Simulated scan of single mutants.
Amino acid sequence: MPRCFQIVTPCLDSAAFIDDTVASVLSQSGDFEIVYHVQDGGSRDGTLERLEHWQACLENGNFPILCRGIRMTVDSRMDNGMYDALNRGFAQLGVDGDSLMGWINASDRLAPGALQTACDVTAAFPDIEWLTGRITRLNARGSLVHIEDCFAFPAKTLAAGLHDNRHLPFLQQEGSLWTGRLWHACGGLDTRLRIAGDFDLWRRFAGRGAPTVVNSVLGQFRHHDRQLGAGDGYIRELDASFTDAMAAHRAAVWAEYRLLSSPKDLGGLAAHGFTGPVVQFVESLGVWKRVHRFPFAQR
């Protein structure tokens, strides 16, 4: 059976960027099916008209389908924030345990070839429940302005809440994909959070294992003035979500990590769980290879 991807875009008054985001999903090429849902919060700026245009293009055959099939749905209603919209969107799709799922916000992009890369990697390593790519950033005009080095996100540091861009780098949501089984096991997104719901989800996912980092670009995050997480609000919300016990655990894991990483004791870091899986393509052999790396670039 071909792999099925279940992708959701939450949006509200996103006419400036929605075409770019939708096109990045619908133009994916490969041996898979896409079920794509846009959950709109009641836009009044022309977003819904653009979404109707894309649906009409698919229905009329005016957009080339480069995979096995695409189904696109749109729902527009008031919601209680982005994470409520995402939970509603995935519920409307009816998440399948064997699918790979993820979301792409209404200004960001899936990279060309992202979904076929995910198919190839999970075919090579069927035990993968969760994968992500290299951290990348676009400017407001859509120029690809930064591609980060490839490093790992160990389950230990993710579960402790250290990937907050103060201790260790954020895990980029754009291009992250996971199985429906993992989503069901962890209970979806916490709708009490307004901005840092992805950070909370990664912590809970990490309780079941580390994400596999693909040494490739799978998604692209766009910086622009209207994005929800601009400024310090994201950090304040994730800190407020920690209980005293969680904060104490984060501090203890950070102290352990710093003790081993300055100077870098690679053997000690590996022995104490500070590594995570990375896969990269070996061109000379034509295969994907899995290695374990640390949560910083190895030079």
Score class of each variant (00 low, 15 high):
71 R>M: 00
74 V>R: 03
67 C>H: 11
59 E>Y: 08
80 N>P: 01
48 L>F: 01
55 Q>I: 10
72 M>D: 10
66 L>A: 14
52 E>Y: 03
65 I>Y: 14
68 R>F: 01
82 M>F: 09
48 L>W: 01
65 I>L: 13
81 G>K: 01
65 I>K: 08
72 M>F: 03
76 S>H: 04
60 N>A: 09
49 E>F: 06
54 W>N: 01
48 L>H: 02
50 R>H: 14
66 L>C: 13
60 N>R: 10
81 G>C: 04
81 G>I: 04
76 S>T: 07
76 S>I: 05
77 R>Y: 14
56 A>V: 01
49 E>L: 12
65 I>F: 03
68 R>C: 02
60 N>S: 15
70 I>L: 00
66 L>M: 14
57 C>V: 06
74 V>N: 04
72 M>Y: 02
73 T>R: 06
50 R>L: 08
57 C>Q: 10
71 R>A: 00
59 E>V: 12
53 H>P: 14
61 G>N: 03
56 A>C: 13
59 E>Q: 13
71 R>V: 03
72 M>L: 05
55 Q>H: 04
64 P>K: 01
83 Y>W: 11
55 Q>G: 11
61 G>T: 02
81 G>Y: 04
60 N>G: 04
66 L>W: 15
61 G>S: 06
62 N>P: 02
63 F>Y: 09
74 V>I: 15
78 M>E: 13
49 E>M: 15
52 E>T: 12
81 G>Q: 07
71 R>E: 06
70 I>K: 00
53 H>N: 09
78 M>G: 06
69 G>I: 04
55 Q>S: 15
72 M>C: 14
55 Q>V: 08
63 F>D: 09
68 R>P: 00
66 L>F: 05
67 C>L: 05
77 R>Q: 13
80 N>K: 11
66 L>T: 02
48 L>E: 15
65 I>C: 06
73 T>P: 01
81 G>S: 00
50 R>K: 12
75 D>A: 14
48 L>I: 09
77 R>P: 01
66 L>D: 08
79 D>T: 12
69 G>P: 02
69 G>S: 14
75 D>P: 02
69 G>Y: 05
79 D>R: 10
53 H>M: 12
74 V>C: 14
62 N>R: 12
83 Y>F: 09
74 V>G: 02
75 D>W: 15
54 W>G: 01
79 D>Q: 14
62 N>A: 07
49 E>Y: 05
80 N>V: 14
80 N>G: 14
72 M>T: 03
57 C>L: 13
62 N>K: 04
79 D>M: 13
72 M>E: 02
72 M>I: 07
50 R>V: 11
51 L>V: 10
65 I>Q: 12
53 H>A: 13
57 C>T: 12
63 F>A: 11
52 E>W: 10
58 L>A: 11
49 E>V: 06
74 V>E: 04
60 N>P: 00
68 R>V: 02
53 H>S: 07
78 M>N: 07
68 R>Y: 00
74 V>Y: 07
69 G>W: 08
58 L>D: 07
67 C>P: 07
79 D>N: 13
58 L>I: 10
82 M>W: 07
77 R>G: 02
76 S>W: 00
76 S>G: 09
71 R>Y: 01
76 S>M: 05
52 E>I: 10
74 V>P: 02
70 I>P: 03
77 R>C: 09
72 M>S: 11
51 L>A: 11
61 G>E: 03
60 N>I: 11
78 M>P: 10
49 E>R: 06
78 M>L: 11
75 D>G: 13
69 G>R: 07
52 E>C: 05
78 M>F: 08
